[in-house]
């Protein structure tokens, strides 16, 4: 029988906290950047102009249909050779994760917008609104309400996806725990603690999302 000893992790607490800080900070950056990419992708795919639509579609499918781990490695190792841009591991992984998340956000945002009844934008147009006015005042306020649960869900997935940046030696929670595990020879305790840390942050978030979904169902 294995003898658990979580006490040993206490001496690595600063390492873990450091890693957790990087993980959370990284998530904030890729969620914000991802939403920006997502907005461009969504509006591009709904554009009147064919070239914009095709560009947006190419972006969405390229990042949605390839594994994020491959993208991370590709951005760090292949892009510098192809494009001649040197990137730090942090920049490369932030870019890859933001674009990956952005492709999913695009589909969520696009779906939210087209789920709004056409009569709504028609009523706006009949009042004399330009398409952008009716998007801002009429369609988006209703669509955002419908998007929020799905956007939250995708952001939770993004939070967990940050664990992959450890392959590029970005010092996130997983990377630091690898260090701790090698140093302490206690991988079981280390990775159990890491799993608990992720869950401790995400479970309250999922409860918030579920409450939001319920409130949404009531108001509609």
């Amino acid at each position: 029988m294995y003898q658990w000893d979580f006490g040993i992790l206490w001496s690595y607490r600063w390492l873990f906290l450091n890693g957790l800080g990087v993980t959370v900070g990284f998530t904030v950056v890729i969620v914000v950047l991802g939403l920006v990419f997502g907005l461009f992708g969504a509006f591009g795919s709904l554009s009147r102009f064919r070239a914009l639509r095709l560009t947006a579609l190419a972006f969405i499918e390229a990042f949605r249909c390839t594994p994020i781990l491959v993208q991370l490695i590709w951005f760090y190792y292949a892009l510098p050779i192809l494009a001649g841009v040197e990137m730090t591991p942090i920049t490369a992984s932030a870019l890859a994760l933001s674009l990956y998340g952005g492709s999913f956000y695009s589909e969520i945002i696009r779906g939210g917008i087209i789920s709004i009844d056409k009569g709504q934008s028609e009523a706006g147009a009949a009042l004399g609104m330009t398409p952008s006015q009716s998007m801002r005042r009429i369609v988006l306020p209703q669509a955002i309400k419908r998007m929020i649960p799905a956007l939250m869900n995708q952001s939770i997935i993004q939070f967990k996806n940050t664990s992959l940046v450890s392959v590029l030696a970005v010092p996130d929670l997983v990377y630091q725990s690898q260090v701790a595990a090698h140093d302490s020879y206690r991988p079981l305790e280390t990775y159990t603690a890491v799993a608990v840390a992720y869950a401790a942050i995400l479970i309250p978030l999922t409860i918030i999302v579920r409450r939001g979904e319920k409130r949404l169902a009531v108001s509609e």
Partner: peptide, 18 residues
């Protein structure tokens, strides 16, 4: 188009209130 439509009011079968 928007300027033109502002001078005509329209009422829809399904109301289309916001």
């Amino acid at each position: 188009l928007a300027k033109f439509r502002a001078t005509t009011g329209m009422v829809f079968q399904h109301f289309n209130l916001f």
